[in-house]
Design a protein around this nucleic acid. Sequence first.
DNA 1: AACTCGTACAACCGCACTGTG
DNA 2: ACACAGTGCGGTTGTACGAGT
Length: 286
Amino acid sequence: MGRAPCCDKVGLKRGPWTCEEDQVLISFIQQYGHSNWRALPKQAGLLRCGKSCRLRWINYLKPDIKRGNFTKEEEDTIIQLHEMMGNRWSAIAARLPGRTDNEIKNVWHTHLKKRLNNHNQTPKLRGRMMIKENLHDDTQNNDKNATTNSNSTSANNFSDITSDEARNSSQQSGFSDDFSSFTDVSSIEAPNSMDEQKYEANESEFDQFPIIDDTFWSSPELCYDSFSMDVVFPNGTEESQYQFQTCQNVENTSVNQGDNVDFWLDVLVNAGGTLELPEFGDFFVG
DNA sequence: AACTCGTACAACCGCACTGTG
DNA sequence: ACACAGTGCGGTTGTACGAGT
């Protein structure tokens, strides 16, 4: 059985909104709010369906909507977030205050896709996570996945290895102007230092860490709650907080590459700290 | 001036998700 | 557990407008 349509289309107006309709909608919402979109047009005296009213309000009339062209920074952010999240426009819009998912979607299809195509190819997100120090205690996973050695030697090795990998990867992709194909996360600082414990992973352990490719964020085998972190770019000029959201089904988790993914993501969820990217080559944070 | 074509963006459509009875 | 209404989301379409011929 199909669902009933959201509104009865008979007698309802479609197409572009007029100034008068906008004014009616604005003043009604200012006065009564929009607790029920379905009932709103009738109450407001608009010959539109509730869905159309909601869309018009959210995408155009809401007071905090930022109009005008996207800045270079906003476009860069969209590119980065899109690489990370894919076509999850609402999630991307959540990171750009005043911008709507529809607007971002449009600007992606009309401007940014082209801009990336001009670079011959879309940059690939690829990366590995590594926790160096200052993390919450997690002794259960700690035994399995990390040592408590606070010496930074391994972290340096890690940087060397990934630098080479990054360079190789970048060469293979032939993409090195604005982005490369490797994301490297070398350290996380937890905000709460009371129960911190230092972790470090050696190279062989690191080799088993999950690669963060496109499927990482959408694979049904990798289902986690959301987590966020600050990413500091190596040139020190850009700093952004990235919200990673995945589906919520930890029950059916099965990770071929071992349990490390559980551990690291648990740590990330709990830490919410700062990531400092090592100093090497070009790279893309997606 | 008239026409065609491409671009930008607002709006629509259908499906998915969530809350509720 | 189920059905349904309301809402959110992403893909797609429609239309206005400017550039080119």
